[in-house]
């Protein structure tokens, strides 16, 4: 059984938990404190408000515990706000949060809620069918460096990236019925468990 944690302070926590519960061999678990991290072999940073989550992970020391596990190759996946938490650079700002992924991310890159949209996209690494994508006040990846692999672009903008054990998406698979990304991430966690 692969135990996958969902950062559970705020945002699309229940949505990710529900998706994970549908995957065979995965046991989902909410995480809030450093001691919760020891019990999981992968973590999802959900959608929500990145400034809010960024502060809450600092308050009770979760940030250091998470960072340590991620640098020791625990699989982690950030959706939307989660992508911002992972980035080593936030365009136009001085702050970063977990600071573990070689990407520069632009917050609210598409604009406000009136600019939120849906699309679909072929992402061969993740699924053989077109994946529906939901963008809510979404960020995009402005640039990448190091060994970051670009998984998908929409209209030239980078919206899905992977760097080894770190996966990040501008969009919210947890708001759709499509299991592709959750299955893909569960695969990353199961593989890491075997090693």
């Amino acid at each position: 059984m692969a135990s996958i944690g969902v950062l559970a302070y705020q945002g699309s926590v229940a949505e990710h938990m529900k998706m994970l519960s549908r995957i065979e061999g995965v046991s989902p678990r909410e995480i809030r404190f450093p001691e919760d991290i020891g019990a999981v072999s992968g973590v999802i940073l959900p959608g929500g408000e990145s400034t809010t989550m960024g502060k809450l992970i600092k308050d009770y020391g979760l940030i250091d515990a998470l960072k340590e596990r991620i640098t020791k190759s625990m699989p982690v996946w950030g959706t939307c706000a989660g992508m911002i938490l992972l980035a080593k650079e936030i365009t136009g700002e001085d702050i970063t949060y977990l600071n573990v992924m070689d990407i520069a991310v632009r917050r609210n890159a598409y604009g406000g809620q009136l600019d939120s949209f849906t699309a679909d996209c072929n992402i061969p690494e993740v699924s053989s069918h077109k994946i529906p994508l939901v963008f809510i006040r979404a960020p995009w990846v402005e640039k990448t460096w190091g060994n970051v692999k670009i998984l998908a672009r929409i209209d030239g903008r980078i919206i899905a990236v992977q760097q080894g054990n770190i996966l990040a998406t501008s969009f919210h698979p947890e708001l759709t019925e499509d299991m592709s990304f959750h299955n893909y991430f569960a695969g990353m966690v199961k593989q890491a468990d075997m090693q």
């Binding site: 559970a8 302070y9 705020q10 945002g11 699309s12 926590v13 229940a14 949505e15 959608g47 929500g48 408000e49 400034t51 809010t52 502060k55 809450l56 939307c80 706000a81 809620q113 939120s116 939901v134 809510i136 006040r137 919210h172 708001l175």
Partner: peptide, 29 residues
Amino acid sequence: NLAQMLKGGVIMDVTTAEEALIAQEAGAV
């Protein structure tokens, strides 16, 4: 969907840009 992103959070009334920054700094969603 946007409302789903706000779950677990606090929405604060503000009357100026300064108050808005205090709210954001405190972790308002």
